[in-house]
Amino acid sequence: MSLDRPSIAVVLVEPAGPLNVGSVARLCANFGVDRLRLVAPRCDPLGEEAVRMAVHGRSLLEAASRHSCLAEALADCRRVVATSGRLDAPPLPLLPPGEALRWLLVGSAATAAAAPSAAPAAMAAPLALVFGREDRGLSNDELLQAGRLLQIGTGAAYASLNLSHAVAVVLHELHGLRSAGEATPSPAGAVRAEDPGDPATRAALEASLADAEELLLEVGFLYPHTAHARMAKVRALLQRAQIDEGEVALLRGMVRQLRWASRRGSP
């Protein structure tokens, strides 16, 4: 990983097919992706079939980290793109691959140019590409852990893609953008006004949301039976805004002060 080329992690959620897992490891090697993360795999990622399909991606397969849930796999990531084939009311807008992947790549480079002292931390956070289950994709809760949702255009007659085929399409598009230098800011290090900075890590945002939910339940704004749905709307709002680490700290500080005041019984 170089300072102008942040690490990219491909994240597979509950993959069930060892052939797919092995094929994805090979694709990661093909396209220069250096991290593979597996969330609660439903097959043996190091079984004979997976290893046979990985070929020269075997080292990536063997080094793949395993996680109990998607939040754990994304905790150190700032910019996350999740893939979705759903058309029924997705929680965030669905974007074509090029648009979603440019967002994934551009922010870290813009941050590095605008604030070089912050660049090491920004570049150390992997960029994540999340792919869902072979049979049912990602849930709404999982999609809401991404900053952008990517949908691959297909023919209307049969829109479902095999997992490894979807990964191949996305990584090919990503490789083209990286090769064309679309992860770098404007010439001479200038940063365009529309270039976004990097959002907070997923771990920081989730901790802030957990604090907020606890307070809102305590003061009666949320009720246990509707809290999940209401907080999903708050999460979607913050995901659209893509708030940064300082803004997350501000929100968390406000929540903690409000909790202190409510428990003390004074304004």
Rank of each mutant, 00 (worst) to 15 (best):
M1G: 14
P6Y: 09
P6L: 03
I8P: 03
V10E: 02
V13T: 05
A16F: 04
G17Y: 12
S23E: 04
A25M: 05
F31P: 03
V33G: 04
R37C: 06
R42Q: 15
E49D: 15
A50D: 01
V51I: 14
R52Y: 10
A54D: 02
V55A: 13
L61G: 05
E62N: 08
A63C: 09
A64E: 07
A64T: 08
S65Q: 13
R66C: 12
R66M: 08
H67T: 10
A71Q: 13
A73M: 02
A73K: 05
L74H: 08
A75Q: 07
D76Y: 10
D76M: 11
D76K: 10
R78T: 06
V80I: 15
V80L: 06
V81E: 04
T83M: 15
R86L: 14
R86P: 00
D88Y: 06
P90M: 11
L94W: 07
L95V: 07
P97I: 05
P97A: 09
E99K: 07
L101R: 04
L101M: 07
R102Q: 11
L104S: 03
L104V: 09
L105G: 00
L105T: 04
V106I: 13
G107C: 02
A109N: 09
A109Q: 13
T111Y: 04
A114T: 04
A115M: 11
P116E: 06
S117H: 14
S117P: 05
A121Y: 05
A122D: 01
A122Q: 02
M123H: 15
M123K: 12
A124N: 02
L127P: 00
V130K: 00
F131H: 01
G132R: 03
R133I: 00
R133T: 04
E134K: 03
S139Q: 12
N140M: 02
E142H: 00
L144N: 01
Q145L: 15
G147H: 14
L149I: 07
L150G: 01
L150W: 03
G153S: 14
G155D: 12
A156I: 05
A156N: 07
H165C: 09
A166D: 01
V167D: 02
A168C: 12
L171S: 04
L171F: 00
E173K: 09
G176Y: 06
G176Q: 12
L177C: 04
A180Y: 00
A183G: 15
P187L: 02
P187F: 08
G189V: 07
G189M: 08
G189Y: 13
A193M: 04
P196D: 00
P196V: 07
D198P: 11
D198M: 14
R202L: 13
L205I: 10
E206C: 10
S208T: 13
D211W: 11
E214Y: 07
L216W: 13
L216Y: 10
E218M: 09
V219R: 09
L222Y: 12
T226C: 08
T226S: 12
H228E: 14
H228Q: 13
R230Y: 09
A236W: 02
L237A: 13
A241M: 13
Q242C: 09
Q242L: 02
I243H: 05
E247P: 05
L251E: 00
G253Q: 07
G253C: 06
Q257G: 04
W260K: 14
W260T: 15
A261L: 15
G265I: 07
S266V: 15
S266Y: 10
P267I: 11
